[in-house]
């Protein structure tokens, strides 16, 4: 029986226009549709696969405002068994350190965790550091950027994908923290039966105090970094036009070499 916790996050839909709030430069959650981050769908899918291959229980863990319930329900409708939702005004603007602390404390509430699965990085903050921070805080091995995962008894094997060096094979004893990449799987779509079943699945809501943490450890005021300024991305420029006077191919190749693209 593998007891799995999957970290999920509600993020602004990448298809809608995403903005930071003008006052404190935190995410403007009202301006965009909120969805379960796609990478987390893959994390949930991987947890469900491990569960279905043997025996197990999948707990979804989400830190986010009240409306993040929708993202939690989606994970439950895919087939996860239960959820923990940490929701607290004090968490607004928390940095990755505080977030990792909160997640670690919440994982402490789940008995006998064998495996924590996260997405490698969120599509909003994009720090990509929470899984590693979490492993450190929990004292578990970290197997990040996995594009293949297999659990064999009390061991976990991961194919780790890095940009330049190809694939590294990692192995660790459980419990462990794994983060997955986009290539890991194709997540399932919830069925109607799953959607209805999700309504009846337990969701435990916890505050910062419930986790035994102090509000002074989290939130915007206690973040280690601050955003001093934010500006929209400049519009795309026209690019460079290559005139073909018989040597167009060479010119393009030279340009690409110049950009270190080939």
């Amino acid at each position: 029986m593998t007891n799995i916790v999957v970290l999920v996050k509600q993020v602004p839909d990448t298809y809608s226009e995403r903005k930071l709030a003008e006052t404190d430069h935190t995410l403007d959650r009202e301006s965009a549709d909120a969805v379960l981050d796609e990478i987390n769908e893959r994390a949930v899918e991987e947890a469900l696969k491990i569960k279905e291959a043997g025996e197990g229980e999948v707990t979804v863990l989400c830190v986010g405002p009240d409306r993040a319930t929708d993202a939690i329900r989606k994970a439950l409708s895919m087939g996860a068994d239960k959820a923990i939702h940490v929701s607290d005004e004090a968490l607004h603007g928390s940095d990755i350190l505080a977030t990792a602390k909160v997640i670690a404390a919440a994982i402490g509430k789940v008995e006998g965790v064998d495996l924590v699965i996260a997405g490698n990085e969120s599509s909003d903050g994009g720090a990509g550091a929470v899984p590693a921070l979490l492993a450190e805080l929990l004292g578990m091995p970290q197997l990040t950027y996995a594009h293949h995962v297999s659990v064999e008894g009390s061991a976990i094997k991961v194919d780790r994908e890095t940009a330049d060096e190809g694939i590294t094979h990692l192995e660790a004893n459980l419990p462990a923290v794994v983060s997955v990449t986009e290539k890991i799987n194709e997540p399932r779509y919830p069925s109607f039966k799953g959607i209805m079943a999700a309504k009846k699945k337990p969701v435990e809501t916890l505050t910062v105090a419930d986790l035994g943490l102090d509000a002074g450890e989290v939130g915007l005021d206690n973040a280690w970094s601050t955003v001093s300024e934010a500006a929209p991305k400049p519009p795309r420029t026209a690019g460079e036009k290559v005139e073909d006077d018989g040597d167009g191919g060479t010119k393009i190749a030279e340009y690409l070499v110049g950009q270190k693209l080939i």
Binding site: S77, Y189, P190, F192, I195, M196, K199
Partner: peptide, 14 residues
């Protein structure tokens, strides 16, 4: 209701 709306969104997404 919630169930119908979630189904609608799921199929929209698909």
């Amino acid at each position: 209701d919630d169930t119908y709306e979630t189904l609608r969104k799921t199929v929209e997404n698909f």
